[in-house]
Amino acid sequence: MTPALLEVEHLSKRFPLRRTAFDALRGHPRPILQAVNDVSLSVARGEALGIVGESGCGKSTLARCLVRLHDPDSGTIRYDGADVLALAGAARRAFNRRVQMVFQDPYGSLNPRMTIHDALAEALRVHAVVPPAAIPARVAELLALVHLPPDAATRRPHAFSGGQRQRIGIARALAVEPAIIVADEPVSALDVSVQAQIVNLFLELQERLGLTLLFITHDLRLVRHVTHRVAVMYLGRIVEIGPTPALFAAPRHPYTQALLAAAPRLVAPSLVAPSLVGGRRRREAATRGELPGGAAIPAGCAFHPRCPVAVERCRRELPSLTPRGTPWPVACHLAGDPA
């Protein structure tokens, strides 16, 4: 495997929540939302890493930490060996150029008052990507790259459909010639027919430009289609990370199994129903109940209240993300345990 281009170690991000004046007077501590909790992962150059999980599991917060829209509370991010969190001034802008983001909402992520040409030209000018005289030509190239007509440049975002806007968002990210694209649910706001076009655009661009892709989604079909490796997140933590085809064929963590079981067309039922955990076979690996909020994460393994195979140890002890006789790291006490 090639050396990691982006390395994340023990990254955590908390958000303090509001408390009522009454709670404050009673001395209750401020509730804290633990959005990202001790996440470590690495991405190799040219790789596509998927990050999946339910809404509210911290995927987007992780993505925003990676492009430095949020400052993490602890942990490190290294790009090409350099500590990203220590960057300031010109070095930070240089990092911004290397790592770009594509947003979920194609309606909110474009400045409604700027024409497409202005938005793309601004990125080109600020980062001096090309000489000023070459900017119009470069804008045309970018639009061609994402399969938009050249006359799109003169119009404003409201003139475009959701799928076209997402292409514009991608073109804007590509304008500064990044090495990594962090795509945060890039197609979940689009019609299914348009989703496929955008996903194929990502695949095409990755191949043509040698991009490294972090593809964040809750849609398992997309992960399978797009990514080489996949990390499964639950309540701020990665519970399992491994090669996409193998992991989808034989998920080790009960949460991953439940996620895959919830996407019926994805895998044959025979692959999902027999739980691989601890040799105990269950008819259903589905989760029970609702996702607890990030402000009240259960002790021990965060998944234990919903886990179909949880034992006493899961309530007390946090499982670490390590290979447990499994081909890839899994954060479950019972994974790979022959007993």
Partner: peptide
């Protein structure tokens, strides 16, 4: 809090540019 501001920040734009070119006209 709009995403286009997040996008502009992710592009490393300066504070004056964010305020005058992106926030103010909107």
């Amino acid at each position: 809090h709009a995403d286009y501001i997040a996008a502009a920040r992710a592009l490393g734009y300066s504070q004056p540019r964010l305020m005058l070119r992106h926030i103010l006209p909107n």
